[in-house]
Design a protein around this nucleic acid. Sequence first.
DNA 1: AACAAGACCTGCATGC
DNA 2: TGCATGCAGGTCTTGT
Length: 275
Amino acid sequence: MPELPEVETVRRGLALKMTGRRIVHAELRRQDLRRPFPPMLARTLTGARVGRLRRRGKYILVELDDNGTLLLHLGMSGRITTGDASTPHATHDHVVLTLDDGTVVRFNDARRFGLIDYTRRGDEEAHPLLAGMGPEPLVPDFDGRCLAAKLAGKMTPIKAALLDQKVVAGLGNIYVCEALYRAGLSPRRVAATVTGARAERLAAAIRAVLNEAIEAGGSSLRDYVQSDGELGYFQHRWAVYGREGEPCPGCTCAEGVRRVVQSGRSTFFCAKKQR
DNA sequence: AACAAGACCTGCATGC
DNA sequence: TGCATGCAGGTCTTGT
């Protein structure tokens, strides 16, 4: 589920529920996800008041009033839902927070590729998980020049390069496929050859697809964190992802959308439109 | 240094 | 129905 648009949708939903609230109880139903939780996590959370919720790439940063910041990553299957105490624990609810208004926040992650860490305020960008992360694609100065600079010298396919969080923060398999399709660039193209007008097209496509997805998530996922973590309706707007064999929008090629595997991950594209 | 493959986990769809 | 297989929105580690 979680690439940048989904993480941003979750962040917005959580901010509405959590900002300004105090955590009155923190239940750790296991002590690790992808890695062990930081020591004393339950004690750190209990009694803390929640400040701003920010996002960096696919991480949600929850500021606490103890001069610390919680780092949350949803991995592949992570979900954060809110409800109240009447909801019984679900399988894979690993962390359950109760807020001072009775709201219950649950971090559920079947595959446990997610992660929770804690760092001191002001040190976030230096945290090993965030240090070296590439530019945020939705900030105003992210453009073709910025993107081309990150791709310079890379002989790997552009598909693989865009999945590297050091190149652009927050992209994942779906939105990389979609952005390359919109930009008309082959996923197999050598990354370093994406310069000039091609880089501008790709940067614009990345921004457009992410913004549209956030909007779509924002409307149908308004209550996402109260729900079962279903996708927003943007999945219905995928042009190529998950559409092997189907015709791509407005294209007359006989072959339709192709699927290939690059660095172990499925890539969906149109060989006619993408060069 | 750069890149690809492997590993980490569970759940689900598919096919026999 | 049961079982095996392959696939999944990520990324850290290992090996070439």
